[in-house]
Amino acid sequence: MKVLVAVKRVVDYNVKVRAKADGSDVDLNNVKMAINPFCEIAVEEAVRLKEAGVATEVVAVSIGDKSCQEQIRTALALGADRGIQVETEGSVEPLVVAKLLKGVVEKEQPQLVILGKQSIDGDNNQTGQMLGALTGMAQGTFASEVAVDGDKVNVTREIDGGLQTVGLNLPAIVTTDLRLNEPRYASLPNIMKAKKKPLDVFTPADLGVEVTSHLTTLKVEPPAERQAGIKVESVADLVDKLKNEAKVI
């Protein structure tokens, strides 16, 4: 079984991002970039499937300019077998990403596609679902457990109020939630081996997709600064403030 994993290059989760002075976007100048944490969980799950003998090949795909090859190499260092970069410039919105991924799915014919449920930069949470709609494949989103059983996969989903398990026919799409697994660290020997693994580059045209834009960012601004708290004299004071100032009771 072939597994396709999508990985995205995003601002490292440790970085405190700033908006550009003109409010046009987040300032990415000299900012440390990394693999999106949910995508890393997706890679880990695929590699575990391979180690368990369920998957035979893990292919990592990323969409972006040349720099996203760094994240593909990370996926390869974590255990993916080969990489695919779809070369694009500038930001690409979820629908286009889904269309490009559909092109890769048609080329590669994977039985399972694993994506992060969202990327920590845009927080869109759309690509997996859109890919499901475009390809007509079954989808199990927000997975906290993935169990492949013959030509089916059972996906346990984290939903409000508990867990839901859906049985999907393969080929299927899974998007990962935080608690699916704890990704391993890439080891030095595997980092060195990752360099030698194949990495193919396609253009959107190769996949028959035109990169278009339907969305415009109006403004990017930092969240309002938190005001300092106050100390209240008594419980009565507190209740009064909660009732009349905060208006929460």
Partner: peptide
């Protein structure tokens, strides 16, 4: 050991990593 920290620069036949490793590592 798992991340390759202990084996860095030691011969691969004993479980180390040498290929591509240099002084800058």
């Amino acid at each position: 050991a798992e991340v390759g920290l202990l084996g860095m620069g030691y011969p691969e036949e004993f479980g180390g990593t040498t290929e591509g490793i240099d002084v800058w590592h």
